[in-house]
């Protein structure tokens, strides 16, 4: 019974998210918009690479490491912060958070549902970016040699992990005013810097590497790279870990983050109700 209700919440929340994301313009313009932004963001790091090393073939392993990490990081940037931004958007811009609260739905499930529309859009962007990399830039990934089971399992676990962290950030957003973008920017910066997104974590100072080992996104990106381009193991700084070990680490960290995220959300929800913050408007 409850499962059916949660599934219905997810379905309609995802539909709402999709409408909000896409119905501001024509489908054609929306597709262009969804493609241009990630491609241009990727081209920044690609050009930085080409200016120094001149050709993809100069260091194809490092290029693949950077390109794959940067492409999949879009999920972190879009889904994680998309979920936390729901609170800000519903509470302050559309002022509908109180209606969501009094509806007979589970709030964390609603947040995940809103995240699903982001996952769909981001998946399209990631596919386009990777296709652009392979077809135009010569990214040395052979789609027939991809370890699909590892890729799919890692994707499912990783997206679940991103959603749980997003729920924690949404909880914090319930209590903050205009700092939503600042918090998102900060967490994005931490993950971009410490998780080996565009450069191997071995280039970080030792204390930075310790932080990297603590964040599950590091293992998630490494698993994705191993499934698509196993040669990147040689430079990742995680060669001592097998895929299975990292999968277990990812799973354990997901459970930990899920536990803490729900506690953070529950406590923030309690404080927000107590302090009357559920319908505050501070940014508009």
């Amino acid at each position: 019974m409850a499962v059916n209700e949660h599934l219905r919440t997810i379905r309609w929340a995802a539909w709402l998210g999709w409408q909000m994301e896409s119905n501001w313009t024509s489908p054609f313009l929306f597709i262009i918009y969804s493609i241009i932004k990630p491609i241009m963001a990727t081209l920044i790091v690609v050009f930085m690479y080409l200016i120094i090393l001149k050709s993809v073939n100069a260091d194809p392993v490092l290029f693949s490491y950077m390109f794959i990490g940067n492409a999949f990081y879009m999920y972190v940037a879009q889904v994680l912060f998309g979920i936390s931004w729901v609170v800000h958007e519903d509470r302050e811009h559309y002022q509908t958070l109180k209606q969501i609260y009094i509806a007979p739905i589970n709030f964390p499930v609603y947040l995940v549902g809103r995240g699903i529309s982001k996952i769909i859009i981001t998946t399209a962007s990631v596919i386009v970016t990777l296709a652009f990399g392979i077809l135009v830039l010569g990214l040395p990934v052979n789609i027939w040699k991809i370890d699909w089971p590892l890729l799919i399992v890692a994707m499912v676990l990783g997206l679940f992990c991103i959603c749980t962290i997003g729920i924690a950030l949404a909880g914090i957003s319930l209590l903050t005013a205009r700092h939503g973008t600042g918090i998102n920017e900060g967490v994005a910066g931490v993950f971009y810097l410490f998780c080996g997104v565009i450069f191997p974590i071995t280039f970080l100072p030792s204390w930075g590497q310790s932080i990297a080992f603590f964040i599950p996104i590091t293992y998630w990106l490494e698993l994705l790279r191993r499934s698509m381009m196993p040669e990147t193991i040689s430079i990742s700084g995680l060669a001592n870990y097998s895929a299975q070990e990292m999968m277990v680490l990812l799973l354990v960290s997901i459970l930990l983050f899920l536990f803490f995220s729900l506690i953070i959300l529950k406590y923030a929800d309690f404080l927000a109700r107590k302090k009357g913050k559920l319908d505050m408007t501070t940014a508009y």
């Binding site: 930085m48 920017e185 810097l193 450069f199």
Partner: peptide, 22 residues
Amino acid sequence: FDIFLPLLGIAAFAFYYQALGA
């Protein structure tokens, strides 16, 4: 938020250039 957080993204690009040997 405005002083320290932007440094994180900049540091990532700086380490990236270091990794490239720039």
